[in-house]
């Protein structure tokens, strides 16, 4: 990609105005995601810095996919802030999936704070080429 070497700009973390009322204390953020689709699968990449693999919850019910990532406080108890540009908290995001997903083959991988979720489409949702016969 040609735009790979451009300079990154700082973006504030997106705090959630959650559709669901939060019943737990703490902040909730929206992770930035990339979603791309091939004929066989939908791949979702989400930036969730500070979330360990075991603290991530992926829930797929009907057509709604919910990602929840819990983080722990980074700072020790005796540390006093000098400069604060970002805050930490839970990550939550929901997606509506239009295609039929083969739930048995979903793969999730967490590395360096990035989630890669591969949602393979069920066989009936994989498009077939239909050849049109000339009459």
């Amino acid at each position: 990609m040609t735009d790979q070497a451009r300079t990154l700009e700082a973006k504030d973390k997106q705090e959630v105005g959650s559709p669901v009322e939060q019943t737990r204390a703490g902040l909730t953020f929206t992770p930035a995601v990339d979603i791309f689709e091939t004929d066989e699968a939908i791949t979702l990449m989400a930036d969730m810095p500070g979330v360990k693999a075991e603290d991530l919850d992926i829930d797929l019910r009907r057509d709604t996919l919910t990602l929840t990532g819990e983080t722990k406080t980074l700072e020790g108890p005796d540390e006093a802030p000098v400069l604060r540009e970002f805050r930490t908290g839970r990550y939550v995001r929901q997606f509506a999936l239009s295609d039929v997903i083969d739930q048995s083959r979903i793969e999730a991988e967490m590395s360096d704070g990035v989630l890669k979720l591969v949602l393979p489409k069920a066989q009936k949702a994989v498009p077939r080429k239909i050849s049109v016969k000339a009459g």
């Binding site: 020790g76 540390e79 540009e85």
Partner: peptide
């Protein structure tokens, strides 16, 4: 304490200190 928005430079950074160290 400087709260967000900060310097506007990537990456967003938090700095803390205790008696011994800066983090």
């Amino acid at each position: 304490v400087l709260t967000e928005p900060g310097a506007g430079v990537f990456p967003l950074t938090n700095v803390t200190e205790d008696k011994e160290n800066y983090y």
